[in-house]
Design a protein around this nucleic acid. Structure first.
Lengths: 142, 142
DNA sequence: CAAGTTGATTAGAATTTTTCTAAACTGCGA
DNA sequence: TCGCAGTTTAGAAAAATTCTAATCAACTTG
């Protein structure tokens, strides 16, 4: 047995625990997708993009399942959904409070550290309703 | 002749001029849609929503034409496109610099006057690229 | 520990949203 | 007025997303 293989299996346990902790059943499909999403540094994916990655890794899931998983993960707070572009929505593995650059040419997203944008004077939400999130997207030509 | 009818025809001229000034041909379809969009106070519409309004006003246009018109108007700076929701994009007749409340329950948008949000410390765009726009969306539960 | 029960999950099918492109139209010059 | 060139429309196609019936997985119960 090769040590290289052992190395890659270590984060799988973390991913499994992550699913268990969220209350989602760790099915074959979800585990495989979660491994792709969380088994590396933070990233921004689209459903189509993750679906293609899955295919390349010989993980057999339907596109509908990818959508289901992304939405389930988002509902459990494992991902954050971002709408910047009418073409498709992005899912961010970084769920901490932060903002984004959007490169209009390539359609790519990049995180902005939370303290490099400061919002002074937030308005009151109308009708006394609660603010659930503030999204700042800085669009950049490239 | 009724004075009431005269009243509603006055803004049509403005709408016609608006189209002419932008360089878009004032076709029957565009005029009808522009009248719906600009013949009243600022509003936020979806393609589907505008299409339904058109039908109710007995304006015969296809949904594809509504999309074409909305995108053409946006390209000429008559509208601003906003992505908040993966379900569909919104078009805002207010093209001045301003931000939005998004009511997650009803899916409605509301303008925030520009000076009630102040952004201190905007980060440098990476690679020296130019910032084309900064969008702030405050999501509200309702 | 096998079988049944219940609720969660998957993925093919359907729907919705958006774009593409051939046909129709418009304005212009001959 | 006629024909040409570019613009606009809208039916058809594509892309994105959701729906739902079939499948599966965890938990009883015998």
């Amino acid at each position: 047995m090769n040590l290289q293989q052992k190395k890659t299996s270590a984060p799988d346990t973390t991913v499994l625990e992550k699913l268990r902790a969220s209350g989602l059943r760790p099915t074959r499909q979800r585990l495989a997708l979660a491994k792709l999403l969380f088994g590396r540094g933070h990233c921004h994916v689209t459903a189509e993009g993750l679906f293609n990655e899955a295919k390349q890794t010989h993980v057999n899931v339907s596109l509908a399942t990818v959508y289901n998983a992304l939405h389930d993960f988002t509902a459990k707070g494992l991902l954050r959904e971002i709408s910047v572009d009418s073409s498709s929505s992005y899912f961010d593995t970084n769920t901490d409070d932060h903002h984004h650059f959007f490169f209009e040419g390539t359609g790519e997203l990049q995180d902005i550290p939370p303290d490099s944008v400061r919002i002074a004077a937030l308005p009151e939400a109308p009708g006394g309703s609660a603010i659930s999130r503030v999204d700042v997207i800085i669009r950049v030509r490239d």
